[in-house]
Amino acid sequence: MYKIAVMGDYDSIYGFAALGLDTFPVTPAEAGERLHQLVADGYGIIYITEALAADLRQETARYEGQILPAIIEIPGVSGNTGSGVRGVKKSVEQAVGSDILFSN
């Protein structure tokens, strides 16, 4: 079974520890290094707050197209930018071949 990590600012991620997930409060300056360490440590799912993910586009791009790790953006306390929802929507469209949110 793969481990699950959550990265972001402390206020956005501390509640995930109650769910049994490993939390890693980081600043944008240290986030890239921490991301690569989590991948090396065998984390299969890495949740990243949307604000932090915006700073890590080059770092997360290294893992696009790979099965693991699954890097998933989540909203933080600073709000939802919508990029997490767009990413999930894109992945679902690729998997099923159509826009599941499109309705007539």
Rank of each mutant, 00 (worst) to 15 (best):
L68N: 06
V26D: 01
Y47A: 02
I100H: 01
V6E: 14
L19D: 04
I46V: 03
E30Y: 05
D9R: 08
T60M: 15
V6L: 14
T81F: 15
L21H: 02
I74C: 04
Y43W: 03
Y10D: 11
G82C: 07
I4H: 02
G65I: 13
K90D: 10
D99I: 06
E30D: 08
I100W: 06
L35S: 00
E50A: 05
T81C: 09
I74H: 03
L38M: 04
R57V: 14
G65P: 04
L52H: 01
I4C: 02
N80A: 14
G32K: 04
G84D: 11
T49A: 06
E64T: 07
L68G: 02
P69R: 09
L56K: 02
I72L: 12
G79N: 07
E93F: 06
D22E: 12
F24V: 04
G20H: 05
Y47G: 00
E73K: 08
V85A: 12
A95W: 13
V96P: 00
V77I: 13
L21G: 00
M7T: 00
L38F: 03
E64R: 11
Y47T: 01
V88A: 09
G15D: 04
L35D: 00
T27Q: 09
I45T: 04
A54S: 12
V6R: 08
A5F: 11
P75I: 15
V92E: 05
Y14S: 05
I45D: 03
Q58E: 15
I74Q: 05
L68M: 14
A51R: 13
I45M: 06
I4Q: 03
I13S: 00
E30F: 05
V39E: 10
D99L: 08
E30W: 06
K89Y: 10
G76A: 04
Q94I: 14
S83P: 02
A5T: 05
K90I: 08
G76L: 07
N80S: 13
K90W: 12
S78V: 14
M7G: 00
T60Q: 11
P75S: 10
A51V: 15
A54T: 09
L68Y: 14
N104S: 14
D9E: 13
K3A: 07
A29M: 15
K3Q: 10
G32S: 04
E93G: 01
R86I: 13
S12A: 11
E73P: 02
G84H: 08
G20M: 10
T60A: 10
A95Y: 12
Q94T: 09
L68Q: 11
Y63W: 12
S78G: 08
E93Q: 07
A53K: 10
E50H: 04
R62S: 11
G65K: 06
T27M: 13
D11H: 08
F102N: 08
E30G: 01
A54K: 13
E64I: 10
M7P: 00
E93P: 00
N80Q: 14
E93C: 03
Q94W: 15
